[in-house]
Simulated assay, not measured.
Amino acid sequence: MMKFRLYFDKDADERFLNNMSAKGYALKRFFLGFYTFKKSQPGEYTYRIELIQDRDSFNKKELYSLIEDVGGELVQTWGIWAIFRKKGDFELYSDNESKISYYKRIKKIFFCLSMGELCILPSQYSMLERVDIAKYTAPLITVIFLAMILQVYKCGRKIKQLEEDL
């Protein structure tokens, strides 16, 4: 089975994957918003998505090995994200301090990406009259910028909530 979803929100993506698992579908692969699932036992897996901060292959292998040691497995990587699953309950972060640090990393990345998009926007809108493709790229970049800023806001809210729970 294949489903299409575009998420910029790792929590929403995890909820989607775990809901599909509850219905008896295990993630097989992911590509550009297309999720391919195979039939499994309902609720067989719990999915977690991790931001791979360190591009050093040794540290990535160490993380993957740590996940395997607790019974998890790497399903797929996509850019800076890794999708893990495990049979039964599964958490990557057990305390609020590590969760806060994690969401701060995500917030920083989305903030930097959104600022890059913001820098591109004026040039796109200035070309609207002269370049036909700008009629498509300017709104697209605007939507991407807004989606990324929304994630910065959501991460900030999540961080604040976690700090209040300390």
Rank of each mutant, 00 (worst) to 15 (best):
residue 124 Q to E: 14
residue 72 G to A: 14
residue 126 S to E: 04
residue 114 S to T: 15
residue 99 K to T: 10
residue 115 M to N: 10
residue 79 G to V: 12
residue 108 K to N: 03
residue 107 K to W: 02
residue 105 R to S: 04
residue 123 S to M: 13
residue 89 D to W: 07
residue 105 R to K: 07
residue 104 K to T: 03
residue 54 D to F: 07
residue 87 K to M: 03
residue 97 E to Y: 04
residue 111 F to E: 02
residue 71 G to D: 15
residue 116 G to T: 15
residue 95 D to E: 13
residue 91 E to A: 10
residue 112 C to K: 11
residue 73 E to T: 15
residue 107 K to S: 06
residue 94 S to P: 13
residue 102 Y to M: 05
residue 84 F to I: 04
residue 93 Y to Q: 01
residue 117 E to H: 11
residue 115 M to D: 12
residue 58 F to H: 13
residue 59 N to P: 10
residue 55 R to A: 14
residue 63 L to A: 05
residue 103 Y to G: 00
residue 126 S to L: 15
residue 80 I to V: 10
residue 75 V to R: 03
residue 125 Y to H: 13
residue 115 M to A: 11
residue 84 F to V: 05
residue 60 K to P: 07
residue 107 K to V: 06
residue 64 Y to K: 04
residue 63 L to H: 05
residue 112 C to F: 11
residue 75 V to Y: 00
residue 103 Y to H: 04
residue 69 D to T: 10
residue 88 G to W: 02
residue 105 R to L: 02
residue 97 E to D: 08
residue 69 D to Y: 05
residue 112 C to M: 14
residue 118 L to S: 14
residue 58 F to C: 14
residue 109 I to N: 15
residue 82 A to L: 03
residue 120 I to W: 06
residue 58 F to D: 06
residue 110 F to L: 09
residue 109 I to P: 07
residue 58 F to T: 09
residue 67 I to Y: 03
residue 104 K to F: 03
residue 60 K to V: 07
residue 114 S to G: 10
residue 114 S to W: 03
residue 115 M to E: 14
residue 69 D to C: 09
residue 77 T to D: 09
residue 105 R to A: 03
residue 76 Q to E: 14
residue 56 D to F: 09
residue 96 N to H: 10
residue 73 E to F: 04
residue 125 Y to D: 14
residue 119 C to G: 05
residue 68 E to N: 13
residue 66 L to R: 05
residue 99 K to D: 04
residue 98 S to L: 05
residue 68 E to P: 05
residue 101 S to R: 12
residue 121 L to C: 07
residue 101 S to W: 03
residue 94 S to Y: 08
residue 94 S to F: 09
residue 121 L to Q: 03
residue 105 R to I: 02
residue 107 K to T: 03
residue 116 G to W: 13
residue 123 S to G: 09
residue 108 K to A: 10
